[in-house]
């Protein structure tokens, strides 16, 4: 087996670009639907595509993922069907959770995306138990737990890291530090600049990576995941990124410093990736256009699928409460 390159310059970013474009197009379809009143608004991951794609592509099929309210990037990068995701967002029966979740807590067990919660920090509280099962039942996979900078301010973050360090749990903690915790800037909420600084006090190795550089994220996540796999101990990777749209659709972002946002828009992860590929000659303009067409076709089909899916029947109201 050829080892996966951990050097960003050796990574073929073309498939990553396509995944990022798919996520962006999916989120934009939701924004358009939200504006038109046809799709419920969501917490989009626009601007954070590289952070999701880079990490998820470093994981193996046996690895498990816990995520949160801002999950479209993780789910799509993991191979979720955008049609079933959109059906879930729209409360339709063909959604991954039979329309009972909506956008905020989508789990897809068959893809290893388990126990999604919209309670900020709940993914952190459940990750140790999932990792404990992996170890005690002799399963090979590690557990990747995605959470925000806001979640890092919850007690569950600190309790989770302490326990994972103490019990040697194979968890890759992934903090997507997007600078916002709903309507509060991280500067107003965190005693430190970086969440990775907090990890070191639990004896957990940590690293902050440019979360808007997909190759850099993938390379750093490979190193991190390999370390968790080899040591069966936790690691914290912080992806330094930015939520360029609002907390939830619609959100006029009147509270956002325009200069800060403009600076991050200039570092858009998709434009950076595409421009680099074009400049390197790894992608030509017609190939780039073909990727765009494939993505547009998939999202178009996803919308059609979700719209054609019916709402759950009334007798679903009390099904699956108890096992």
């Amino acid at each position: 087996m050829t080892p996966h390159p951990a050097n960003p310059h050796e990574i073929d970013a073309r498939p990553l670009l396509e995944q990022m474009l798919l996520i962006r197009a999916y989120e934009e379809a939701i924004v358009a639907g939200s504006d038109a009143g046809t799709i419920p608004g969501t917490c989009t991951s626009v601007g954070q595509e590289a952070a999701a794609v880079g990490v998820v592509n470093a994981l193996g099929a046996d690895d498990l993922i816990l995520t949160n309210h801002r999950s479209a990037g993780h789910l799509l990068a993991r191979g979720a069907d955008p049609g079933r995701l959109l059906a879930e967002v729209m409360g339709r029966r063909d959604g991954y959770c039979k329309g009972r979740s909506g956008s905020l807590h989508i789990s897809v067990k068959e893809l290893g995306v388990v126990l999604t919660s919209t309670i900020v920090g709940a993914e952190l509280s459940m990750a140790p138990g999932v990792a404990l099962s992996q170890g005690m039942l002799g399963r090979p996979g590690i557990v990747a737990c995605f959470f925000g900078d806001g979640a890092a301010c919850e007690g569950s973050f600190h309790e989770s890291l302490n326990l994972a360090a103490l019990w040697n749990l194979p968890i890759l903690y992934v903090c997507e530090n997007n600078h916002w915790q709903a309507f509060v800037h991280r500067r107003e909420a965190m005693s430190r600049e970086h969440v990775s600084e907090w990890a070191s006090s639990y004896g957990i190795p940590a690293h902050t990576v440019d979360g808007n550089d997909v190759a850099a994220v993938l390379a750093a996540a490979r190193v991190a995941a390999e370390q968790v796999r080899a040591s069966r101990r936790p690691y914290l990777l912080e992806t330094w990124t930015y939520r360029t749209r609002g907390h939830f659709e619609p959100d006029d972002q009147s509270y956002v410093d325009p200069a800060e946002r403009a600076a991050w828009l200039a570092r858009d992860p998709i434009a950076r990736c595409r421009d680099r590929l074009l400049a390197d000659g790894a992608l030509n303009p017609s190939q780039a256009a073909a990727i765009g067409d494939r993505v547009a076709t998939r999202i178009h089909a996803a919308r059609a699928f979700a719209e054609a899916s019916s709402y759950p029947a009334a007798d679903e109201l009390t099904r699956d409460v108890y096992a």
Partner: peptide, 22 residues
Amino acid sequence: RNTPLAEGIIAGTAVGAAASGL
């Protein structure tokens, strides 16, 4: 196992473990 004095993570760990086979 003994645990830290942290009821949230004790219960959360039980939830995660229960959902994954223990």
